[in-house]
Amino acid sequence: MLVLSDLDVRRCLSIKEIIDVNSKALRSIRDNGGEAIVPRRIGLPYRSATACSSEDAEDWTLFKPAYFPASNDEDEEVMGMKLVSIRGNNPTLGLPTVTATTALNNAETGEVEAVVSSTYLTAARTAAGSALATKLVLEGRSPEELAGLTLVVFGAGLQGELHIRAICLLANVIRLVIVNRSKERANKLSAKFLKEGLFSDIHTVELSDEERVRCAVEGAHVIVTATNASTPLFAGSWVRPGCHVNSVGSYTPITREIDDELVKRSHAIVDTHEAINVGDLRWLKNQNDRKCTLLGNLLAGNDVFSEALDETIDCTLYKSVGTAIQDVCSAALAVKAAREKGIGTNVDMS
């Protein structure tokens, strides 16, 4: 059995490779033809001292299985399960908010063939979905609109960082604004990008500074919300017409990063149909005359993106809650690359 650490995974895969494999994974769960099998996830709430019941719990551990059958000679079948935990207090302990591990099975024998640390992969595959959605939305824009984009990212953790890297691979971002509860953490991420020479125009904003947050949102062409916030981060009325928003942080019916105003103004794209149950899309769930477009349908050409539904809808929103098929396909690609490069630790489980 091969065991890969987070560092091993980073050495094995580029962001571009992760984007490509996630395009395939998302297409596999399209309506009418999607071949993947993805059972419902199982969630265990962690009741902290402030939570009275499982519904109040902000921390969860999730078990997410998936199977990707080989539908042609180029694909390899993949079976596995990811165990992911969200702990809001982890940053104070010097740990990531989201930690994850994926086990991959030999589909024929059922034996576990690899265990992959998936904290980095979880952030990377989420960012890949957002980058793909952003690219699809921007494809219909004029060259003038695409000449130089301002990207505003809420969250300075690993998710925020990898969203910046992934989106900038597929879009011409020239100005970056990082908004975070801790200005120190935002400045640290900013310094990292400046040192790498990826941007020259970077600004950091503390989330509590409402005036500067509003200014950042009003100037954004693309926004990412990648936080563990339970209430909206900004007013939807601040968002400029034509803006695209990727919301990836909230994942339960009672948590949200964006408000109803933004949802009402947006054509919604989702990674899975389950995303409609998340707090962010609470308003949309009760609207019979409004639908969400599945990202896999767009990537597969089963659906055509139409930005203008009527005069009241002037933004786009991609809501992601993650799907296990992304996890197992990303982990399988890491294992394949690791074996080719001689990376990782082999463990005899007999």
Rank of each mutant, 00 (worst) to 15 (best):
V78E: 10
E307F: 15
L162S: 01
S130L: 04
D289Q: 13
D260E: 15
V328G: 08
V173H: 11
K264C: 10
A70G: 13
V263Y: 02
N297H: 00
F199Q: 11
M1E: 13
A166L: 00
D8S: 07
C215D: 15
I325E: 12
A229Q: 00
D327A: 10
D310W: 06
Y251W: 12
L281A: 00
A49S: 14
N180D: 06
S306R: 14
D280N: 13
A334Q: 10
M349I: 15
H203L: 11
W60H: 13
Q326G: 04
T102W: 01
R212T: 13
L162A: 03
H267N: 12
H267D: 04
V3P: 06
I18K: 01
G148R: 09
L189N: 09
L295Q: 00
L207T: 03
G34V: 01
G242P: 01
V248A: 01
L299R: 10
D259W: 00
V304P: 05
S5N: 09
N286W: 12
S320I: 00
I37S: 14
T231H: 10
I15D: 14
L13I: 08
V239A: 01
S182H: 11
E139K: 14
E218F: 07
V115W: 05
A133T: 04
H163G: 00
G148Y: 05
N288H: 13
G140C: 04
E55D: 15
L284P: 04
K64W: 08
T102D: 02
R125Y: 06
A216W: 03
E311R: 14
N105T: 12
V137P: 01
D31T: 13
S54D: 14
T255P: 04
L189A: 10
H203P: 04
S266T: 02
W283F: 10
